[in-house]
Amino acid sequence: MSNSLGYLARTLAPLRPVRIVDVGANPIEAPVYAGLLRRDLAEVWAFEPHPEAAAKLRAAAPENVHVLERAVGRPGQAVFNAYPASEMSSLYKISTQSTGYLGHFRRHLNSEVEVDLTLDSLDSMPELPAIDCLKVDAQGAEVDVIDGARSKLSGAVAVVAEMRFYRLYDGEPALHDLDRSLRDQGFVLHRFLHQKSRMLGNSQAARLNRRAIGSQLIDGDAVYIRNPEDRSAVTDTQLAHLALLADGVFGSHDLVLWCLDELASRGVVPGKVAAKYVDKLPEGLKAERIEA
Results as ranks from 00 to 15, higher is better:
10 R>N: 11
11 T>C: 12
11 T>S: 15
11 T>F: 04
12 L>H: 05
13 A>S: 14
13 A>K: 12
14 P>D: 02
14 P>H: 02
15 L>I: 10
18 V>A: 02
18 V>S: 00
19 R>G: 03
20 I>H: 06
20 I>Y: 04
21 V>I: 08
23 V>G: 05
23 V>P: 07
23 V>Q: 05
24 G>S: 06
24 G>M: 07
24 G>E: 02
26 N>S: 13
27 P>M: 09
27 P>T: 09
29 E>I: 14
29 E>Y: 10
30 A>P: 07
30 A>S: 13
33 Y>S: 10
33 Y>T: 09
34 A>D: 11
35 G>V: 11
35 G>D: 15
36 L>R: 07
37 L>M: 11
37 L>Y: 05
39 R>K: 15
40 D>K: 14
42 A>V: 14
42 A>Y: 09
43 E>L: 12
43 E>Q: 14
44 V>C: 02
44 V>D: 00
44 V>E: 01
45 W>V: 14
45 W>P: 04
47 F>W: 01
47 F>T: 02
48 E>V: 03
48 E>K: 01
49 P>C: 00
50 H>L: 05
50 H>M: 05
50 H>I: 12
52 E>D: 10
52 E>L: 11
52 E>F: 01
53 A>N: 06
55 A>N: 06
56 K>G: 08
57 L>Y: 03
57 L>I: 06
58 R>S: 07
61 A>D: 01
61 A>F: 01
61 A>L: 02
61 A>N: 02
61 A>H: 00
62 P>G: 08
63 E>M: 09
